[in-house]
């Protein structure tokens, strides 16, 4: 199987792949799996009701990755998929998801990915999901990911959720439950521009003693775009939670940031920091004094911030 150059470019924007790797992979194009391979330790197959994928990682699997990117290229196509990922005991794996939309038409196209992730005892999982839209049409590029993650006792998970650019409308919803001695780190990077809208809702339940959750969000809103970020840490045990949301606002953009801490156990320790501000004049002048133009200085600051 080989891809058209523009499709491969889209895949590589969201996954950093330059060609199709051997090993566990599923590439979905306009609602169809065009490549699907399992590896000895990672099975990739349809779920029970045929609405999406089931990816299961064998206990003890170390240092392996599975790629499950999605692209939408057909004009006006609306894709919806239900995927389940099960990371069995004592594994250490990376899951690379992500969605890219190319739309040159005047009809809206989109992808709703509904993901359930279970990380079992003693495992570590890294989950990376990048979103990107492109194309010349007036049709919107819409991405609505829903992620439900359960981290079992003594496991840890890192999630990197990134919206690179070009997504007109997004509603991102993430729910996480973490148990005894677990750790979870969610890093979100969100860029909106033009008339785009983004809403991100993250709820993390700290359900077990010794749990540790961090939500770190960085966002940039340019032009007339608008963003709403609502994140809640719900402490239900002797656990630690920290929430940080930091945003750069530019032009005529709007940002609403709502960090929420809910303690339902007297031992829970929850903290948050939130900041919204424009790029400081001193920062621009400093980079310009090193020889960058004003535009280069702005882009350098944004790229660094969202890195």
């Amino acid at each position: 199987m080989s891809f058209k150059a523009e499709d491969m470019k889209l895949i590589s924007t969201i996954t950093d792949l330059t060609d199709i790797p051997s090993g566990a992979i599923n590439i979905r194009v306009d609602g169809q799996a065009v490549i699907r391979n399992s590896s000895p330790n990672i099975s990739v197959g349809p779920n029970d009701d045929g609405t999406g994928l089931k990816v299961e990682i064998k206990a003890g699997t170390r240092d392996e990755a599975v790629h499950v990117p999605v692209i939408v290229t057909k004009a006006g196509f609306k894709d919806k998929v239900y995927n389940t990922f099960i990371v069995n005991e004592d594994a250490d794996v990376t899951i690379i998801a992500g969605c890219g939309i190319h739309n040159d038409s005047h009809a809206d196209s989109g992808h709703d990915g509904i993901h359930t992730i279970i990380v079992k005892k003693g495992s570590h999982m890294k989950y990376v999901e990048k979103h990107y839209g492109e194309g010349s049409g007036r049709g919107k590029k819409i991405l609505n990911p829903t992620t439900d993650i359960t981290v079992e006792d003594g496991a840890s998970a890192e999630m990197e959720l990134v919206q690179i650019a070009g997504v007109d409308d997004t509603l991102r919803s993430t729910i996480a439950r973490i148990h005894e001695n677990d750790s979870l780190k969610i890093t979100e990077r969100l860029m909106t521009h033009d008339d785009q809208r983004a809403e991100s809702l993250i709820d993390v339940y700290l359900k077990g003693t010794g749990g540790n959750a961090q939500i770190l969000s960085r966002a940039v809103a340019r032009d007339k775009s608008s963003q709403v970020f609502k994140a809640a840490l719900i402490g239900q045990a002797d656990a630690l939670g920290h929430l940080e949301c930091d945003a750069i606002i530019m032009d005529q953009a709007k940002i609403q940031s709502v960090p929420q801490l809910v303690a339902e156990d007297a031992q829970a320790v929850l903290t948050h920091e939130a900041a919204i501000g424009k790029i400081a004049g001193e920062q621009l002048v400093k980079l310009m004094s090193l020889g960058l133009s004003e535009e280069e200085a702005v882009n350098t600051i944004i790229e660094g911030f969202l890195k």
Binding site: R218, D246, A280, E282, Q283, K286, S289, L290, T300, I301, E303, G304, F305, L306, K307
Partner: peptide, 14 residues
């Protein structure tokens, strides 16, 4: 021309 600021600004991510 180059200038080392008296109070250099800080950057997140650089």
């Amino acid at each position: 021309i180059a200038y080392a600021f008296q109070q250099p600004p800080r950057f997140k991510g650089l």
